[in-house]
């Protein structure tokens, strides 16, 4: 019997180890798995390399994980957003490393990693400061840069609904990086608002097939980063 349901967020992140690479879903607050991130802070793993488009906002979710000193390195495209103060401060004082990657290259590196493709060429960033250290090659008269696939030990993502096999659907623009990260991580942990019985998700509309998912945990009323930030919440 395949049943990927896990009883609690704490149990779902229990084996994240020090020094692990963790992909975290979300673009801004849309799709940010706040409850899983808070469980990871409680769990205590440190020296993490985290992959996310941003670096969180306020002092909750991803920003709280960074503030707690658990993140050694961020791989992202846009580390400063509205209400993003934690990362800039630690970065300026040299306490967190940054690998800046153009957003589309970041997405494709994750997709490639999950698809077993070690590297690919892209025209993005040719002739810019972000070309530094990358191999350039010409195809059909146009220059491209070599980008390598990204994989991770864990992915923490958020969906709208899952079934016990781990088949997933998402909510609107909260989908963003999650389906790619689910493919690229050895252990993908998903928090969903609702776990439904097998057969209740239409096989034609499943976005992430369960093969890419290891653990599913129900968080019925997930918190929203903007609401927490606006009310001045700081985790823990």
């Amino acid at each position: 019997m395949i049943d990927k349901r896990i009883a609690s967020v704490d149990e779902a992140v229990a084996n994240v180890f020090d020094g692990a690479t963790v992909m975290v879903g979300g673009f801004g607050e849309a799709g940010s798995p706040i409850e899983l991130l808070h469980a990871l802070i409680d769990q205590g793993a440190t020296g993490l390399t985290v992959v996310n488009n941003n670096t969180g906002s306020g002092e909750v979710g991803l920003a709280a994980l960074i503030k707690a000193g658990r993140v050694a390195k961020m791989i992202c495209s846009y580390p400063r957003t509205t209400n993003s103060t934690v990362f800039p401060e630690l970065y300026r004082s040299g306490r967190v490393e940054l690998e800046l990657v153009p957003q589309g290259t970041l997405a494709e590196r994750i997709r490639a990693g999950g698809a077993g493709i070690p590297a690919f060429y892209t025209q993005t960033a040719v002739g810019t400061p972000l070309e530094e250290g990358q191999e350039r090659r010409s195809f059909n008269g146009r220059d491209y840069l070599l980008a390598t696939g990204l994989t991770a030990d864990f992915a923490l993502i958020k969906g709208r609904a899952a079934d016990p096999h781990g088949n997933l659907v998402y909510n609107k623009t909260a989908r963003n990086f999650a389906p790619l990260m689910a493919m690229a991580a050895r252990t993908t942990v998903v928090q969903v608002a609702e776990i439904v019985a097998l057969g209740e998700l239409d096989a034609e509309v499943v976005v992430t097939p369960g093969i890419f998912v290891e653990r599913v945990v129900a968080v019925a009323n997930p918190q929203h980063e903007s609401v927490l930030v606006a009310s001045g919440v700081s985790y823990p």
């Binding site: 673009f27 509205t82 997405a107 494709e108 609107k172 963003n176 990086f177 929203h224």
Partner: peptide
């Protein structure tokens, strides 16, 4: 909906005939 936003992370709406997709498809 805090999960229906644009690239500037501001809330938007989806018109009739809209489609959602993941980042690799988007790029």
């Amino acid at each position: 909906d805090p999960e229906l936003i644009n690239a500037g992370k501001r809330q938007v709406t989806a018109n009739l005939g809209a489609a959602f997709f993941h980042h690799a498809d988007s790029f």
